[in-house]
Design a protein around this nucleic acid. Structure first.
Length: 570
DNA sequence: CGACTTTGACCCGCGC
DNA sequence: GCGCGGGTCAAAGTCG
């Protein structure tokens, strides 16, 4: 954003950020950037009558007219249709404003003039009316603006509520999978790689998730043999029926298992649980749901909780982009604390730590691709514990959007989020090449491949389409101004201009070069920002793992998984 | 002089 | 238990 001073954007192209709240947005506004929204406010409140020839509103034909810097969101899509020339916007607004005033003028005019009509001269009346009307115009305009913002606020509240529901659903799904695996472990006593994962706090847990669906799929066939291990008094047929029921229950909705997990975390956090008020324990007597919680102790839950946190902490976002520099300029400050030669890659891997916060845990690894050394692979890990600078915030949208697409796909409902098959399909269909999930990496990793211009273009289109739909399943932070910053629009338009014109995007600007904004930089800082939201990271981990698991099961454990790729390229 | 980079040593998990 | 590899530490060096 700050580095995008030279970036001018055609205002017609900012069509997909119309749903944000203006007041919040302004808090992210850099004062030296033109804001159409702020201009609108100023036009209405301080300068209601302005002709197209006014000096402070340069005409597009004039020499000093410049395209509008799209540094903020435009909340008035109706205005956008005629907003290419700012003075037309003013005229239109004035007309609409006058209409409002006229429509209200009957009432207000009577109130203001009836008491004075018989006591003052016509000149006084005209003077008073003029001044009253002027101030009243301002009041009316402000009131109208306030009303509009209130409506927008209400709409955003509804949207936020929907997003919260979606997030809860995702969390529930995650907890379900965890609990299901824990239950199965407790039942069968099978010692597999999951247990190995317990020691490694991250890698094994990933595999644990990847195995979830495979295990689930194989469960019926294992039931007869494992039944004796679990409980000799239970018949295989009974186990099978209960397992089938459990599978259905897990796939369809939340359960007591989930509720217990949520309650645990809630009590730990000192917050209250939203939603889930049913008590399936009584509702389904004798079902496996009743028994399932008994297989897991509080110690197991604690361990599971720590595993979850660890996994969340280990979730990574990787970006592949071309760059000549040693690293990408992503808006954050990094300190190099190590460098190692990684196996299978002649290029050293550098380790960086975020130094913007006192004890910011965010780290990133930078390594050149072995096959193509012009490609720089940057992997981010951890959550920022400090506010991100505008330069980093601005570009956060891209990676966030990529992850969002993986999370939400095109599905508008929370149920869709629960359906990881759809998620996987969406991940395949909507982002087949520029965003991939790593199944073989030790940690769940989202990889954005921006080395191909087509990918950039595709990514930009997908992001734009996603935001146009503004799916309710979009994570809540995705709707915030911290993500949809003004420079995002700059960046997106920048990308759009280049991609649409078939011009290859500039390579990564290195930190030690004169910096010009690029999508690659945007991605880099966006990746850093995406990790700033632990809730999202948790949801991301859940979604990724569920996708991986479904792909795993859908392909019957086939190793050739089209949605996965090892971003290590080793 | 402080911030940052370099680089060898060290720690730890994992596979054999 | 041992070796390997990834990740981190910390002292020394470098730079502005």
């Amino acid at each position: 954003m700050a580095k995008g001073g030279g970036l001018t954007i055609d205002p017609d192209s900012t069509s997909f950020f119309i749903t944000n709240k203006p007041t919040v947005l302004n808090s992210y506004t850099e004062p030296n950037h033109t804001s159409r929204f702020k201009n609108d406010i100023m036009d209405i409140s301080t300068n209601p009558i302005r002709n197209s020839g006014d000096e402070d509103v340069p005409s597009p034909a004039s020499a000093n007219w410049k395209p509008v810097l799209v540094n903020e969101m435009d909340f008035f899509p109706a205005d956008r249709n005629c907003s290419k020339e700012s003075h037309r916007v003013n005229i239109k607004k004035e007309s609409a404003q006058d209409m409002v005033i006229r429509s209200l003028g009957i009432k207000t005019g009577l109130n203001l003039t009836t008491n004075t009509s018989s006591e003052k001269s016509n000149e006084d009346d005209r003077t008073n009316n003029a001044s009253n009307k002027k101030s009243f115009n301002e009041l009316i305009a402000l009131q109208a603006e306030l009303d509009r913002m209130s409506v927008e606020n209400e709409r955003l509240k509804v949207l936020l509520s929907q997003v919260k529901d979606n997030y809860n659903s995702l969390q529930i799904h995650f907890a379900t999978l965890m609990q299901h695996q824990q239950t199965r472990k407790a039942k069968t006593g099978i010692v597999d790689e999951v247990i190995n994962g317990d020691k490694s706090n991250g890698g094994g847990l990933t595999r644990q998730f990847m195995d979830l669906h495979r295990v689930e799929k194989d469960e019926p066939s294992h039931t007869s043999s494992e039944g004796g291990l679990r409980d000799c008094s239970r018949s295989p047929m009974k186990d099978k029926v209960e397992l089938e029921y459990k599978k259905q229950k897990i796939c369809s909705s939340s359960s007591e298992i989930i509720q217990l997990d949520l309650d645990k975390s809630d009590s730990r956090n000192g917050t209250t649980t939203t939603g889930r008020e049913d008590s399936p324990d009584q509702a389904i007597p004798g079902s496996v749901l009743n028994k399932a919680p008994r297989f897991t102790t509080s110690r197991d839950n604690d361990h599971q909780h720590s595993e979850t946190l660890s996994m969340i902490r280990k979730a990574r976002v990787s970006v592949r982009a071309r760059s000549d520099g040693t690293t990408i300029n992503d808006g954050c400050q990094w300190r190099k604390y190590g460098q190692k030669m990684a196996k299978g890659n002649p290029c050293p891997r550098a380790y960086y730590r975020c130094t913007m916060g006192a004890s910011c845990p965010v780290r990133k690894q930078v390594q050149r691709c072995a096959e193509d050394r012009s490609i720089l692979i940057t992997t981010y890990e951890g959550n920022h514990n400090h506010p991100l600078p505008p330069a980093a915030m601005a570009t956060a949208s891209y990676t966030s959007a990529a992850a969002s697409m993986l999370l939400s796909g095109s599905m508008p409902s929370a149920d869709a989020l629960m359906n990881s098959n759809i998620l996987a399909r969406t991940a395949l269909s909507s982002s087949p090449s520029f965003a991939t999930l790593s199944a073989s990496a030790p940690f769940p990793t989202v990889t954005l491949d921006l080395t191909q211009p087509n990918n950039v273009s595709q990514f930009q289109r997908a992001v734009q389409g996603q935001f146009n739909m503004f799916s309710p399943s979009l994570p809540h932070f995705m709707s915030g101004p911290q993500v949809f910053g003004q420079a995002l629009q700059n960046q997106s338009k920048y990308v759009g201009l280049h991609s649409s014109q078939g011009i290859e995007l500039p390579p990564f600007a290195s930190s030690n070069q004169i910096h010009t904004p690029s999508l690659s930089d945007a991605i880099g800082s966006a990746t850093a920002a995406i990790t700033a939201d632990p809730n999202f990271t948790a949801a991301l981990v859940a979604a990724i793992t569920s996708i991986i698991g479904n792909v795993h099961s859908n392909h019957g454990g086939n190793s050739t998984q089209p949605t996965t790729r090892n971003n290590d390229n080793n």
